Amino acid sequence: MRTVIISDILTMRKPLAQLALIGVFIALFTGSVAIAGFFPLLFMTSLFTVDEQNGWERFRLTLPVTRSQVVRGRYLTVLVSCAVSVLAAVALAVPLSWLAETGLPVATVLPTEGPGIGELLFTTSVASAAAALAILLLASLSMPVYLRYGATKASRLAPAVVILAFCLAMATLEQVGVLAQWGPHVDAWLEGLAASGQGAPLAVLAAVAVLAVYAVSSQVSCAIYERRQF
């Protein structure tokens, strides 16, 4: 498993510098939190693309690793990229805030006047973790498509799968009356959770649920990749 992860990292050795530079520019104009959203997604799609363009998929199967190990290693690599992106977003929050205080047109998470560094780091951490979890959900839907059809076809099919899943979920919620009943009260409910200090358990529960979906997706991808013909 570790060999597969190292292989993925080595595959992205050259594109990684370009992605990091893109991430810095994104952070400058949209805030450091955006790194946690954009970087893992760009990393995942670039990894599959580089794999296909250089023929590493077929070569990797000649190594003493199983297809399931390849898939699980890929999922762990994307998970690691999410964790690294959250750390990068938090690390850049304070420098970007300082740059914004000098008058430069730099985006920050919070206004430059008033909040201290502690509040800035806490807000950035929560927002970045939420963005990373959203990317993991997106990856849970799109990675089985990438592993089944390859990067070229998946670049056209994966967005359609994600949009279809979103539409079906929203239609189901609307059909059972969840949106009409709870939609107007969501903001007040979230503010109440934050004020009462009960938001942390809910956040942990949400993170566990996302990771569970991600784990199920990896199992589905393993079954799909075992049957794929090259």
Score class of each variant (00 low, 15 high):
L202Y: 08
G197I: 07
P95M: 00
W56N: 14
G199Y: 06
G197H: 06
L10H: 03
V33Y: 08
F25L: 09
R74I: 01
V161Q: 05
T152H: 14
V78T: 01
W182A: 07
A36I: 04
W189H: 14
V178P: 08
D187Q: 15
I224M: 01
T152R: 14
E174F: 13
L96D: 04
L168M: 08
S155M: 08
L21Y: 02
V65H: 15
M170W: 07
G192C: 06
E226T: 08
V145Y: 04
A151M: 05
I135K: 10
V70Y: 14
F39K: 00
S85C: 02
P95V: 06
A171V: 03
Y149C: 05
I26Q: 04
W56S: 11
L63F: 12
F48K: 07
A160E: 03
L120V: 07
G177R: 10
Q181H: 12
R228S: 12
H185L: 12
A151Y: 09
Y146A: 01
P111L: 08
L179F: 12
A207Y: 01
V220N: 05
L21F: 12
K153S: 14
P15S: 12
P144D: 02
Q198K: 09
I117V: 14
V186K: 02
R72I: 10
A212Y: 10
I224A: 02
G103P: 07
A215Y: 03
F166C: 06
V145S: 05
L92G: 10
S155L: 11
P115R: 06
S142K: 13
A139N: 04
S97R: 12
L16C: 15
E52C: 05
L99K: 08
T30S: 15
W189K: 04
A130W: 04
Q198S: 12
L104C: 09
E226C: 11
T49I: 06
W189G: 11
L47H: 01
M1E: 08
G150P: 06
A180E: 14
A20E: 01
R60K: 07
S85H: 00
S221C: 03
S32K: 06
G199M: 09
I22A: 13
Q175E: 07
A132Q: 11
T11M: 09
I9W: 13
A134L: 15
V186A: 15
A17C: 10
V109S: 11
A154H: 03
A215P: 02
P15D: 06
P64S: 08
A215D: 01
R67P: 10
Y214E: 02
K153H: 14
L133Q: 09
I35W: 12
Q229P: 00
R60G: 05
V216I: 13
Y214I: 05
A215I: 02
V210C: 05
Q18Y: 15
L10E: 03
V216T: 08
C167V: 14
V186G: 14
F166D: 06
V208N: 00
W56P: 00
V213Y: 01
A160C: 11
E113F: 10
T102R: 12
A130N: 12
I26C: 13
I22H: 01
I163D: 02
L202H: 04
Y214N: 06
P64M: 07
A17R: 02
A200C: 04
L168Q: 01
A209V: 09
L193R: 15
L16H: 01
M170A: 10
F122Q: 04
T62L: 11
S217A: 03
I224D: 04
V80W: 04
A134S: 13
A130H: 00
Y214R: 09
F29S: 08
A91V: 14
P201W: 01
L63W: 05
